[in-house]
């Protein structure tokens, strides 16, 4: 017991203090790094001007180094090759190659993913079924190991590319997501999705986005500053945290809003006007 406490303290010393983003996600308590609570669905929305990829990198690092020996991550990469994530995460102090060799990170390289044929709906559907069963198998393999009790996080970067791979059949993508979400509920995983908000801002396809926002427990939006580009403030984050019950018992449905500046080795979060 004492050994555990010491380990906790050491880890607390090693890790940087929790930041505004972690607090808003409800991760920042006690100094020790915690992964996202199981069963959570997090949706990151960004736009052309301000990429939200850094939130994903942060959550990826967080998930891999959380808890006892870290959790597992299944990363569905459609946007970038492995080398990109490896370099970015290395600067954040987390080696993806090592994590992959240790079987902590299951990297699905789907940069070139195309569902066979692309002619009828059936091919796309069966493609998604295949993808889902791969994920399911990977998770069950991890759950069966006795030593791994950490949280499993599924990450999708990014959903709009999955839509393109599915040739725009939104129903297939939504079905796939429903399956993934039911998986998170059954097997104690959490799901992190990156998507682009501005694609759906026109009147044509708002249904998909509102579906996603309904499914998500936490929505993180990255936007540029309304006053234009700045070298000191890269944009603002808005976080809608739906009904987390805090440790005091009352549920909080809170909106957090703050600015950020992305650096190579981390991101600075601060309230508007509190920097410099």
């Amino acid at each position: 017991m004492r050994g555990f406490a010491r380990r906790e303290r050491e880890r607390g010393d090693m890790n940087p203090p929790s930041n505004l983003l972690d607090e808003a996600l409800g991760l920042g308590h006690g100094g020790a790094i915690a992964a996202l609570p199981a069963g959570r669905v997090v949706l990151v929305e960004d736009c052309v001007e301000t990429s939200g990829a850094f939130v994903l990198h942060h959550l990826l690092k967080r998930a891999l180094s959380a808890g006892e020996g870290g959790g597992d991550v299944l990363f569905l990469a459609l946007a970038q090759p492995f080398s990109h994530y490896d370099r970015v995460l290395r600067k954040l102090g987390c080696s993806l190659s090592v994590q992959r060799n240790n079987n902590k990170l299951h990297f699905f390289d789907m940069l070139k993913l195309e569902f066979p044929g692309l002619t009828g709906g059936n091919d796309i559907e069966s493609g998604f079924v295949g993808l889902y069963s791969k994920i399911q198998r990977a998770i069950e393999a991890r759950r069966s190991k006795e030593y791994s009790r950490g949280c499993i996080t599924i990450m999708i970067d990014d959903l709009s590319l999955l839509e393109i791979a599915a040739c725009g059949s939104i129903d297939c993508v939504l079905d796939f997501l429903y399956y993934c979400i039911s998986l998170t509920a059954e097997l104690d995983c959490s799901l992190v999705i990156l998507n682009h908000e501005d694609i759906y801002s026109s009147e044509e396809a708002p249904r998909f986005l509102s579906h996603l926002e309904y499914l998500a427990d936490i929505v993180i939006k990255t936007e540029p500053l309304s006053t234009g580009l700045s070298a000191d403030v890269h944009g603002q984050l808005t976080i809608f945290n739906k009904g987390t019950s805090s440790r005091h018992g009352h549920s909080m449905n809170k909106i957090h809003n703050f600015h950020f500046k992305v650096k190579e080795n981390g991101v600075e979060y601060f309230y508007p006007g509190s920097q410099y």
């Binding site: 990109h84 970015v88 890269h234």
Partner: peptide, 18 residues
């Protein structure tokens, strides 16, 4: 200039003028 590529980095390139 709307966007400058960010390969192998997460830091956006902020230009003085766009």
């Amino acid at each position: 200039v709307h966007k400058v590529s960010q390969i192998n980095t997460q830091v956006p390139v902020i230009l003085e003028a766009t």
